[in-house]
Design a binder for these strands. Structure first.
Lengths: 245, 245
DNA sequence: ACAAAAGTGTTGCTACTACACCCATGA
DNA sequence: TCATGGGTGTAGTAGCAACACTTTTGT
């Protein structure tokens, strides 16, 4: 190649190759689906809508949407979240991509699954389209498309992450009692925990701030309320290594 | 809707809706990229080729290919692996999907990243197209597309997984010494480990089978060779729970 | 004999489990 | 006064980190 050619001309020609190449590839529609977890009445919940599609009439599905041209995956997922819940700047994690040719009755649709955690009490839903509703995770059976699989995979991811990162706090009020925190973990992990050991664990991590406030309107001795010290957690360097099959 | 219509007719009509809907969505090309890790001379390596694209002339890229119509993601990734290495039935894990609109100079291309682990010594490469080569992971700098990001994300995933599952054995010969095993972990995790504690750890897990054989052709006292007991590992139920931020 | 890596034990510390009683509050 | 959950401590155990010397083999 002649190195004295203007760079722009050369570059234009080279990119043209790539454009032709990409144009020859098979194409698929691209969507995001968000598994939005919430927590209320000591139950882990998930936000679902009735399927848009006649083919899945009556079945519940995840909140999703098409990824727009020139829109990033994360941006699309945040948009879905924002349009439904009005929330921004919330934890959101990409989990897995589902692309079985038969997963959508309308042709091949590739979907990228995300999950997010939001505090049900602190946010009213922005729209009530498609009967959007919080569902108890335990009670969910059939869903449209392969959304039950997606939900299960995201739930497993959540179970794992919540043990390694303080994500769970996104599901609680700013101020919470240790009982609430324990109920949250028990709901997410679907196990029972020893209360004393649970407290010791969290106090020893030393990321809880004692607000000096107490629960109100509870029919028993009120518990202390705490906040999570995100600042201190940020500064904390996670120790690394520990083989454990 | 008239419920006495033949089911097929009804169903056909419903799917037609979906087809029209999907047809109206923006489309993207879909590819898979495989980060194929190997281990040799106490170094973690990765299999790369020279970019097909003139725009990235001279740069190294991951092994990838277009996902065919009606081909599943995992199938496509296995196909790439098979076409390059002749290997089947190897560990392969989906990691993350990359879809920034600008990541490919030829237009929007969504790629799903996988990683895999293979034993370099036991398999000759099937083709030598595009100067396919094993590269020392430490020595890799610039790569084409966003492949360096993809590589880094896959390496992090590997570091995590290898501490929780006995994946590393896929990179070793059937029979290996504990020194080799430790070198492998040190290379993947990029840390030094205490030899005695490392041995104790693995012996106490009790998944190693003593072959009663020894290394040969080593210029020092030969070490015992072991196999990994995959059967026993399979039966072993992973214990659950342990919050640890 | 020397070089090089294999192989081995002990001690202290930390972190987890299991478990039972008294306390504060609202009804 | 009772019911309900809040709050606390201890003893036993398991697992991890740190650490140095002897053994075996090839050259």
């Amino acid at each position: 190649m002649n190195r004295s050619l203007p760079l722009t001309a050369g570059k234009g020609a080279l990119i043209q190759d790539a454009v032709q190449m990409v144009a020859s590839y098979p194409k698929t529609a691209l969507t995001v689906d968000c598994v939005i977890f919430g927590f209320e009445e000591n139950e882990l919940k998930v936000l679902l809508i009735r399927s848009d599609l006649q083919a899945y009439k009556g079945l519940w599905t995840l909140l999703g949407d098409v990824v727009r041209e020139s829109e990033d995956l994360g941006d699309a997922a945040y948009r879905v979240l924002r349009e439904r819940t009005g929330l921004n700047d919330i934890f959101l994690e990409q989990v897995q991509t589902f692309s079985s040719p038969g997963r959508h009755p309308g042709g091949r649709v590739t979907t990228v699954a995300f999950y997010s955690l939001i505090n049900i009490r602190h946010h009213r839903l922005k729209t009530l389209d498609n009967e959007v509703h919080w569902h108890n995770l335990q009670s969910i059976e059939a869903m449209g498309f392969d959304h039950k699989d997606i939900l299960d995979v995201c739930h497993q991811r959540l179970q794992r992450r919540v043990q390694e990162h303080p994500l769970g706090f996104n599901l609680l009020p700013d101020k919470f009692s240790l009982r609430e925190l324990q109920n949250l973990y028990e709901a997410i992990l679907d196990i029972k925990l020893d209360r004393r050991n649970f407290r010791k664990k969290f106090f020893s991590m030393d990321f809880l701030i004692d607000t000096e406030e107490y629960e109100v309107d509870v029919p028993h001795r009120p518990g202390k309320l705490y906040k999570f010290n995100f600042q201190k957690y940020q500064r904390h360097q996670r120790k690394w290594f520990g083989i454990d099959f």
